[in-house]
Write a protein that binds this DNA or RNA. Structure first.
Length: 746
DNA sequence: ATAGGGTTAG
């Protein structure tokens, strides 16, 4: 303990001034008692030259000198390296300050002691120094309280605990109120273990602990994701007669929220009600938020409506959550209505409100509304923050406009808003999805250099990028790098790798990883299962897939649309249409949303069978069930009509799809071009070909090859050659069917 | 309380 307090000086006792230079002291007192005495003293080198520790002590303890003058003198000495006041001087002043109950000033002086290595002294020594002339134990206790507080405020937690120990040994009464300062400070600094151990010391020292301190520790555990431990602590305290209150319950509910355990959070709310506590706005908001995190927006909405129904009023947070819900489910009209309602009700929207709405409108492609929101923000002096930049940069990335995304990124940094981990993650994902792994990896390196922390999402994004590019080596290396760098693998990391193994027909490897995942206590979720089921399906192991599916169903897992679609696809591919329809009906019966993909699978299968009646029936059914066709739906049909030679119908459908808001993509164009060419309509095909390129759709090798062959068949060799070069330029490797071009060249 | 990553169909 002594080590904590380097103490170089030898201290004489305070209250026995045996100073041979009482002269100096009384001279100084005389000067200081005058008006502006301190200024006179500053210009009296003769007096100052005789000043020493004892003289200072005499001056400060002289009751004829007003306290104000003492403080001026003390500060003058502090600013003067030659006359730096020693520990005794500090303590003398403290004693005087205490007599006049100037506690703020005492804290200031104690602060000086704590922050000066030369003065720092063990609490026992300080006490022995002041106790020499006083048996005022209330003063000593008060001094300890304040010293404890000063150490805490300065982040000197170990020193604070030493004071606590001293107080315990001395048999002082330690108030919970004092200890809470340290508990809160430790929690704020994320020193949760120390927070808990100090709490235990409090209990051990018979401090009258209440639910207040207990809740601080519980909150600390919860925030660190240790909600179970928090719950255990609560239960243990209940046996000691300390009952949780609304705050405690809310903290525990928040703990479950952090871990994504909404069901547990809801259970906890029931318990608190059972114990006679009314859930408040925080309780309901936390549960609603937890449901939002799980994308269960309808339930989240219900909870908030229940809250309002109970007469609890909306605040900024609940408005923001509700606006977020409507934004996420795409009902921007309702989100905007709430936005107006909150303003009318006198709740000022904040940066979160604006960001939420901007994100919602961006995903709807409504740029006009976004402009208005930005104008309103400026008027309300709400400054754009990193989150809204990330939203916009992400918008550009998802539209594959990486140039604009990067431009905004640079503009943002020039404007003084620093990119964070999320910003980089967004851009890295953008470049990965654009197949520009070099740029993605470069940004990954830039993060390191600019001191932006790389987290699990960063690694997952890049690993997925490499997996999708078939670069398993790089992916695996990053996976290992995570371990070394202390970045945790999570369910995404495993799912990404399990997927790539499934897709590469390495089912054994996938299963091995699945087991490894369970060992590292990462629980598989619906995505992991869907990935594996698809892996089995596509590797001719339908029975295995069915087995896993049944296991999930029995285990009470929430099977989702993708789970069903994956199996329906497998049945369609094996032409087991009866089974496919049976599953479709089952998903409906279980309340699982039948979506566009489900219909696309059935429509495609019916097309392949040539059962157009069924195709039409399915189309009608989609309309009735309000399932919108997408570009894949239309492309399936367009392809079918092209193959049948009904080009008029195919083009008509292409028109319909654009009216319905689905843009034709690579596959659509490929079908149409192939259709035109098989009827010798080369110019029509060329027109489509340049149209798709104009729209920024990069043709694949199949499209290039088909067009090049079409051109060469009609003797238009120059054009064929030009396209061939264009294809090479685009980085597409030519296949055997156009190898003749090389010979043609030479 | 707002932003980022993994699974299905042509």
């Amino acid at each position: 303990m002594q080590m904590l307090f380097p103490c170089r000086q030898t201290i004489s006792r305070i209250h026995t001034p045996s100073n041979p230079r009482e002269d100096t002291a009384s001279k100084i007192v005389q000067v200081l008692r005058k008006n502006s005495g301190i200024d006179i003293l500053k210009h009296s080198p003769l007096i100052l030259s005789t000043l020493n520790s004892h003289a200072v002590q005499l001056v400060l303890s002289n009751s004829r000198l007003p306290l104000r003058s003492c403080l001026l003198f003390f500060n003058f000495l502090r600013e003067n390296p030659a006359h730096k006041p020693d520990l005794v001087a500090h303590l003398t002043l403290i004693r005087r300050l205490y007599d006049e109950r100037k506690f703020t000033d005492i804290q200031f002086v104690l602060n000086c002691i704590a922050n000066d290595v030369d003065l720092r002294t063990p609490v026992s020594k300080i006490v022995s120094l002041v106790e020499g002339g006083t048996d005022d134990s209330i003063f000593v206790q008060k001094l300890c309280d304040m010293l404890f507080r000063v150490y805490t405020d300065n982040g000197m937690f170990e020193e604070a605990v030493v004071v606590f120990d001293y107080m315990e040994i001395s048999g002082f009464k330690i108030l919970e109120r004092i200890c809470i300062v340290l508990l809160l400070a430790l929690k704020r600094c994320n020193r949760i273990d120390m927070c808990f151990s100090f709490f235990r010391r409090m209990v051990g020292a018979n401090v009258e602990v209440t639910i207040y301190s207990t809740t601080i520790v519980i909150d600390g555990f919860c925030r660190r994701g240790e909600v179970e431990r928090a719950k255990d602590l609560m239960e243990k305290m209940v046996t000691k007669g300390i009952e949780p209150d609304v705050f405690t319950y809310n903290m525990l509910i928040n703990g479950f929220y952090i871990k994504g355990m909404v069901e547990e959070a809801i259970k906890m709310k029931a318990i608190m009600e059972h114990k006679g506590f009314e859930p408040d706005v925080v309780t309901y908001s936390t549960i609603a938020c937890g449901l939002c995190k799980l994308k269960r927006y309808e339930e989240a909405k219900m909870w908030l409506f229940t809250m309002i129904g109970k007469g609890l009023t909306h605040n900024l947070v609940t408005f923001n959550i509700l606006i977020n819900i409507y934004s996420k489910i795409g009902n921007l009209d309702e989100a905007n209505r709430l936005f107006e309602e909150m303003k009318k009700g006198g709740v000022r929207p904040d940066i979160v409100t604006y960001n939420t709405l901007i994100d919602g409108y961006l995903k709807k492609g409504n740029l006009q509304e976004i402009m208005w929101l930005f104008e309103e923000m400026e008027k309300g002096r709400v400054r754009p923050d990193i989150v809204v930049y990330n939203i916009l940069i992400n918008g550009y990335c998802k539209k594959e406009n990486l140039e604009e995304a990067k431009r905004l990124f640079e503009k943002m940094e020039k404007g003084g808003v620093r990119a964070n981990t999320v910003t980089y993650n967004i851009l890295i994902d953008g470049y990965c999805k654009k197949d520009n792994l070099d740029e993605a990896k470069w940004l990954f390196e830039v993060m390191e250099k600019s001191g932006v922390r790389r987290n699990t999402v960063t690694y997952n994004t890049l690993i997925d990028g490499y997996c999708k590019k078939d670069n398993l080596e790089e992916a695996k290396q990053l996976f290992e790098e995570m371990e070394e760098g202390g970045v945790r693998h999570d369910i995404f990391t495993y799912s990404i790798l399990i997927d790539v193994y499934c897709k590469k027909n390495k089912l054994e490897e996938a299963k091995l990883l699945f087991e490894e995942m369970e060992e590292s206590a990462v629980r598989p979720n619906i995505v992991t299962y869907n990935t594996l089921i698809d892996g089995y399906c596509k590797n001719a192991k339908l029975e295995e897939a069915e087995r896993l599916f049944g296991e999930m169903e029995k285990g009470g897992a929430r099977l989702d649309t993708i789970t069903y679609n994956t199996l329906i696809d497998a049945y369609c591919k094996e032409e087991k249409m009866e089974q496919a329809y049976k599953l479709r009906n089952r998903m409906e019966a279980r309340g699982v949303r039948v979506d566009t993909v489900t219909y696309n699978l059935l429509i495609d299968a019916s097309c392949k069978k040539g059962d157009f009646k069924e195709v039409e029936r399915l189309f009608e059914e989609m309309e009735k069930k309000d399932v919108r066709g997408d570009k894949v739906t239309y492309t399936i049909l367009i392809d079918k009509y092209c193959k049948k030679g009904n080009l008029t119908k195919a083009h008509k459908l292409r028109g319909v799809m654009e009216v319905m808001g689905s843009m034709p993509d690579l596959y659509t164009y490929a079908s149409l071009i192939h259709g035109e060419l098989s009827f010798g309509k080369l110019d029509e095909a060329l027109k489509l070909f340049s149209e798709m390129k104009q729209r920024g759709i990069i043709p694949n090798d199949f499209t290039y090859t088909t067009i090049i062959l079409g051109l060469s068949k009609q003797g238009r060799l120059d054009e064929a050659l030009r396209l061939y070069d264009e294809m090479i330029e685009a980085g597409i490797t030519p296949n055997d069917r156009v190898a003749f071009i090389q010979r043609l060249r030479s």
